[in-house]
Simulated scan of single mutants.
Amino acid sequence: MVRSAVDSARQEDTPGIVNLVLRCCVNALLTAVDFLNKFTINFAAITGEAYCSSARMTYELLRRNLLSAVFVETISSRLLAGIVFVLSAIYTIVVCAILKAGTNLGADSYFVAAMAWVLLIVVLGYFVHVLDNVIDTIYVCYAIDRDRGEVCKHDVHEVYVHLPISRSLRQSVPTRTLGV
């Protein structure tokens, strides 16, 4: 509802600094809610808890285990986006070289290569979106395992144990390993 109000205000294009500042504040708030919402929905799907209790339990789970959701979110999203960009750029260069060598399209070969680049970015973007959700879900499962002191998948725990702990709580709570 708030997002639709912001979108309608943007479409009306009402001038004014107050309108611009309000839109920026609301967009920042919605981005923060979306970030917290992602882990809450994953936790609710795994445990079957209600949304509000899942939000509280997710926050407590990540805080109690000193896990940095921001680090996982930032690194995984940026790394996957970089991979998409590099793969699509290499693909575009290969397509352009093949078109230049095999056809006599001339300048149109650049247009075809650019369209191939856009198409590959869109397709890989959808795959990356799904993969990013999978990574977030595995991270919540890892937090649950760590909280219970259980290890369901040793391979996952070996990777996640190398991630940094939350900076805000690092000094106040001593770190301990769970025999993983």
Rank of each mutant, 00 (worst) to 15 (best):
T177S: 14
F111P: 01
G179P: 11
T31F: 07
A44N: 06
L178W: 03
M1I: 08
Y139K: 00
V161Y: 11
R10N: 13
Y110E: 05
A143P: 02
L29S: 01
A45W: 13
S88N: 09
Y59D: 07
A50E: 13
D132M: 03
V18N: 03
R3W: 08
V26A: 02
R78T: 14
V159Q: 03
D7I: 10
D108N: 12
S8W: 11
R64K: 15
F127M: 13
I138Q: 04
L120V: 07
R170S: 13
I165T: 10
S76I: 03
Y59C: 12
M57D: 14
P174F: 11
L169N: 07
V26L: 02
D147N: 14
R148A: 12
V33E: 07
V130H: 07
I165P: 00
S172C: 11
L99V: 05
D132S: 12
S8M: 14
T47M: 05
D145N: 09
R78Q: 15
L131D: 02
L22W: 00
S109A: 15
T92P: 02
T175M: 07
Y110F: 13
G125Y: 05
I83C: 06
M57G: 05
A143K: 00
R56C: 06
L131I: 15
R146P: 00
V180F: 06
P164Y: 10
A45K: 09
S166E: 06
A116L: 05
L105Y: 15
N37H: 14
V70G: 06
E73R: 03
A107R: 10
D34I: 05
I46P: 01
F39A: 02
I135K: 04
H162R: 15
A107G: 10
I17T: 06
S109D: 11
F71L: 03
F85V: 07
R176S: 08
